[in-house]
Design a protein around this nucleic acid. Structure first.
Length: 152
DNA sequence: GCCAACGTTGGC
DNA sequence: GCCAACGTTGGC
């Protein structure tokens, strides 16, 4: 079982969307970066635990936890010409992008802010806080997972 | 809204 | 395969 951090803009999909549909599988689509795609495709597995991170918003940071309930499959949005995630260059026989499904686990009582994460020496190796890192899907070690949630 | 940093594209 | 131009990310 692996640990991950997934970024999302809460205006698109927030921890509250999970919390309001706690038994429903949420399609995690729209990842359009190859390194993030490779993690999704090759390493994200059913049962993995995911930190849901809110970016580009008022309160930036880790807002909750979700669990992977379906491993990688062709991201349907890449073939939908009305979607903002549409990719005209992706062909059905060889889909370029993948999605996974997540399900709600918990909402943290308070967001663990990026500020707090940055100020923790134990988080120095987390890709999130490394200069210039823009990965939207990143691995988290078991130790980092524990240490990060202990920042609450 | 700004802009630094990074990724992608496409001409050569 | 290089690299300039352009697009995107995401904190501030």
């Amino acid at each position: 079982m692996n640990y991950w951090l997934f970024k999302t803009e809460p205006s698109e999909c927030s921890i509250d969307d999970f919390a309001h549909n706690p038994t429903q599988a949420i399609v995690w689509e729209g990842v359009r970066n190859y390194q993030a795609r490779n993690y999704l495709r090759d390493d994200v597995a059913i049962g993995d635990q995911v930190l849901i991170y809110h970016s580009s918003c008022k309160l930036i940071g880790v807002a909750g936890i979700a669990e992977v309930v379906r491993a990688a499959y062709a991201d349907p949005s890449q073939f939908d010409s009305r979607s903002v995630y549409y990719d005209a260059k992706s062909i059905a026989a060889q889909p370029r992008w993948v999605a996974v499904d997540l399900r709600f686990v918990s909402k943290l009582p308070a967001v663990i802010t990026l500020d707090k994460i940055k100020s923790s020496a134990k988080m120095a190796e987390l890709p999130l806080v490394q200069k210039g890192s823009r990965l939207s899907v990143m691995p988290v070690t078991a130790q980092q997972w524990r240490d990060l949630l202990a920042l609450q």
